[in-house]
Nucleic acid binder design. Structure first.
Lengths: 160, 160
DNA sequence: GAGGATATGTCAGCTTTGTTGACACAATTC
DNA sequence: GAATTGTGTCAACAAAGCTGACATATCCTC
């Protein structure tokens, strides 16, 4: 499988011909390692709280968009309401998130982080943010804008 | 909790002072969305094979480094051997991966993808590679090198 | 050659976090 | 008044991680 000694000397920079043979295993792999270690950062804090990564995501998004409804959160996380209910209930019972009946539509539950929830969200984000800042600094000036655009282009545009 | 009307007007653009107040929520979030949709790509293929993401990772890495041992794979994936055993056994029984007794150390099992395993690895990587290529193209020239360096800097350097 | 260390496999049970299906209830809308 | 919508909840199940314990074969050391 390694005998590709054709006359294509430096084809690696040619991205236009993305045939069957040119699969970007390198970036695929780097994404795996980067994300694995990135999500590993908050684990120590989560263990102390007795929470998992599912709780992390909920606290993060509610903190980022205060007043979002349960339906909003389900749409963001792309999980079922039964999955969400489990972790959300624990976070409410533990005093990290509170619910407010929707002012217009009283069926809705607007979600807010408490002071403790904000502190938790910040504590969890801190090592991740530091890792990102360090990586961007090492990568060079202008890296943030490029990386940001790349990540935006990587996610699905439509159903968000 | 929201009454922070001090005299700090425009501190948001100042990135040099990475104090408690400047957390990069934006990139954190983008990483989540990008990775979520990136890993969602192979799901359709995996479902047809009856495999999950754990199988995907195993096939990918064995395909990338033929002849790697079980210990190598455990170190790469950072999971326990009991977790690996489950999916590895299924992949061997299904004929996607085969084991060869180590030529020097006969306790070792060198892992190789079969022809079917290679085809599976390629099929799973293809949509992910396409997504990456599209995202890089949209981001602009030179993006690949910057993104690659960023990802390398994001992962833990030591224990790899 | 005996004994300890190493590489791998396996059994059993548990946890987290996702899933489907079904149903309840209040509030809104038609 | 009837249908729809937003949310909560019960029950069962699946994927994929974990710990602990133990077996076997092989290698390495004294």
């Amino acid at each position: 499988m390694a005998g590709q000694s054709r006359d294509n000397s430096q084809y690696t920079t040619d991205v236009t011909r993305k045939s069957e043979d040119t699969i970007d295993f390198e970036i695929i792999e780097l994404l795996f390692f980067a994300y694995r270690d990135f999500t590993g950062d908050p684990d120590a804090i989560l263990e102390k709280s007795g929470f998992g990564r599912a709780h992390h995501r909920v606290v993060h998004f509610v903190n980022r968009e205060p007043g979002m409804t349960v339906a909003d959160l389900l749409d963001t996380l792309k999980i079922t309401k039964q999955s969400l209910a489990r972790v959300l209930k624990q976070l409410i019972d533990s005093g990290y998130i509170r619910q407010v009946t929707g002012p217009e539509d009283r069926r809705q539950r607007m979600l807010y982080t408490t002071k403790e929830g904000q502190a938790l969200a910040r504590a969890l984000a801190e090592p991740q943010s530091r890792r990102i800042a360090d990586a961007l600094a090492k990568t060079g000036p202008g890296a943030r804008e490029i990386v940001k655009r790349f990540l935006v282009n990587m996610k699905n545009s439509a159903a968000d």
